[in-house]
Nucleic acid binder design. Structure first.
Lengths: 144, 144
DNA sequence: CACAATTCAATTGTGCACAATACATATAGG
DNA sequence: CCTATATGTATTGTGCACAATTGAATTGTG
């Protein structure tokens, strides 16, 4: 194994992740969202009223990342946070009506993004995604 | 296109990038490096004495990211920054002897990482890397 | 019941990513 | 030469990622 940048696997992966987020950025900016905020909303649109730790498991993020992010979403009026009655340690995140309504405005985003990605030729998206998921799962289970 | 998290391409990509960086983290911590700092050193080990903007082009990073990162590497004694004589706007980054010497200690990193990734079965690394690079290039050239 | 261990969120601190701006230097046109 | 424009880095501000710690609340065990 060499130390040449072009021989590394990780750099293309990280660079691609940054590049794709850059495609989302202007689209999401119109909704006043960042990409990680959008991910949180995706999860809540699927199933509202989840705890911080449940969101963290789904997105592989910890409370140090989620707490301030959720506070910003709360200041934007998109979510509401409240302690669970049965377990006061747990904070449940709910969509507000405005957060729920944003779902309709976001509906067109996936196709917009796919359109922008369309110029990447000959990429088997399904297989590519499967590879990414296998890789992530293998690493998350890892030594640590 | 749906808004379900599992249907998105981008999230697996971003999650995989984070997971791979997490594999590097403890390995690089022994050298006192972060992953982006390691990338900068990879580029300098290939070819010492590059400008900030040249590093930025190679790594797709701007001065707002690189300037403080390089200042930290300078405080660590691994690089030296000096203005180019012919063009005083340009800052050239040089490896110090200690930065150059670190290359030997880093030599074993790629194989360590490949070992950790080895548990991700059935991933054709070469094809996967090619896909990532095609994707990144297509996006970098894009509209913006 | 009491107390230890665990769980969950929040906080703090460091570092990266990027937009916007500022500022110095360099180059070109007149 | 002198000014307009372009270039290269640095700075500032916002937001994300993560380690480490804190503190409250819950659960398990004796």
């Amino acid at each position: 194994m060499s130390l040449r940048l072009d021989d590394q696997l990780c750099f293309p992966l990280v660079a691609a992740a940054r590049a794709v987020q850059a495609v989302y950025r202007p689209v999401l900016a119109e909704l006043g969202l960042t990409y990680p905020q959008y991910l949180v909303l995706l999860v809540l649109w699927e199933s509202d009223g989840q705890s911080v730790s449940a969101l963290g498991q789904r997105l592989h993020l910890d409370s140090g990342t989620l707490t301030p992010l959720l506070q910003r979403l709360e200041r934007s009026g998109l979510v509401r946070r409240e302690r669970s009655q049965p377990d006061q340690r747990v904070v449940i995140v709910h969509l507000t009506p405005s957060g729920d309504a944003l779902r309709e405005r976001a509906a067109c985003i996936p196709s917009q993004i796919v359109g922008a990605l369309g110029s990447a030729p000959d990429v088997d998206l399904a297989a590519f995604k499967a590879t990414l998921q296998r890789l992530t799962e293998a690493l998350v289970m890892e030594p640590g």
